[in-house]
Amino acid sequence: MFLAIREIKKEKLRYGLILTVVVLISYLIFILSALALGLATANTAAVDSWQSKSFVMTKDANGNAGQSLLTTKQVDQLSDDKTATLGITPVNMKIGGKRESAQFVGMNNDEYIAKNLQLTKGHLPKAANEVVLADSVDKDIYGMGDKISIGLSDTKYKIVGYAKNATYNTAPVIYGALAQWRVIKGVSDQFQGSVVTSKTSQSVDDKALKTYSYQAFINKLPGYTPQKATFGLMIGFLIVISLIVITIFLYILTVQKLPNLAVLRAQGIPNRFLAQNTLFETFFIIATGIVVGAVLSALTEFGIPDSVPMAFDWGLMGLIAAGLMVTGLLGAIIPIRVISKIDPVSVIGG
C-alpha cells in the first residue's frame, strides 16, 4: 500500500489515464446493463404484475400470445377459480393525429389478474368502452377521460385509469374488457381469448394446446431472448476487454519499473511486499473506476429520455462490479509474476 499510494500520487497523469479507461469501461458496462434490464423490464413488466405460474395457448402460436386463439370450449375446459383468461393482441392506439403501438390485453374483472391490477390513478374498466392505459404513456396526449381508437374497432374508448408496471413486449398495455379483444382483433365469436393464465401449474389434455411456465412464456416474447443474449454477450465481452486492458496497463507499468524493483529486491525488500503493492494498486484503480462509473451511470439516467428504457438494479450492479473487480485482480497476476521473476543480479554492473 505504501508504494502504491505514493506512486499514484506522484504519477497522476499516468494513473489518471488508466483510471479513465477503467471508468469508461465500467460506465459502459453499467449503462449497457441498465439498458438490458430496462429493455427486459419493458418486455415483462405486465407479465410480472400478473403473478402467474403457467400460461396455456394454442400450440400453433408457438408461445406468442398475440398469435393464439382459444375457442370458447377450450377456455371453458381450462377455467377455474385460479385462472384468468386474457385476450392479447398488438394494436395501434390513435388520438387526434397521434398514433402509437400498444398491446391490448382484454380481461375479466372478476378474475385474479384484474383484481390484482395496481392502478396509479382511476378505476378498472367498468363499461365495454372503458380502458386503463399503462402509467408510462404521455399523459399530455393520453389524458384521463380522453377517448382513443384501438385497432380495428370503431368504438372510441375512454381512458378511465392508469396501471403501474404495464408494458408488454416493450409496448404500453391497454387493459380493457375481454369481450372487446374480439372486436379490436377482428376475430369471430367462436374465440374467447388468447391465453389462460393460472396462479398454479396447469396440465392440458388437448393436443392443440400447450402449457408454458412463466420463464418459457417470457422467453417466447418476440425478440426477448435474442435481445437478452446480445446484451449478455456485449457485457461479457466488455468484462473480458477490461481484463485485457488492465493486464496490459499493469504489465507496461511494471516493466517500466523493473530496474527499480530489481534494486529493491537486491536491497532485501521482500517479493511479497512488492506483490501486495501491485495488488493494492489494481484494487484502487478498479474500485475507483467502478465508483466513478456507477455515479456517471446514475447521472446519465436523469438525462436519458423516457423513451429509452433503463433500469438500475443495485444487486445486479453489485454483481457486475464484483465481476469487474475479480477480472481486474486476475489481470494483476501477470505483473505480479513478472515481479516474482525479477533477478536482482540484473542491476549489478558489468
Binding site: 505514493r6 506512486e7 504519477e11 527499480n260 542491476v347
Partner: peptide
C-alpha cells in the same frame, strides 16, 4: 547496497 543507478525509487 549502493548501486550505480536506480538506487532510489523515483516516486
Amino acid at each position: 547496497f549502493v548501486l550505480q543507478a536506480y538506487n532510489l525509487v523515483p516516486y
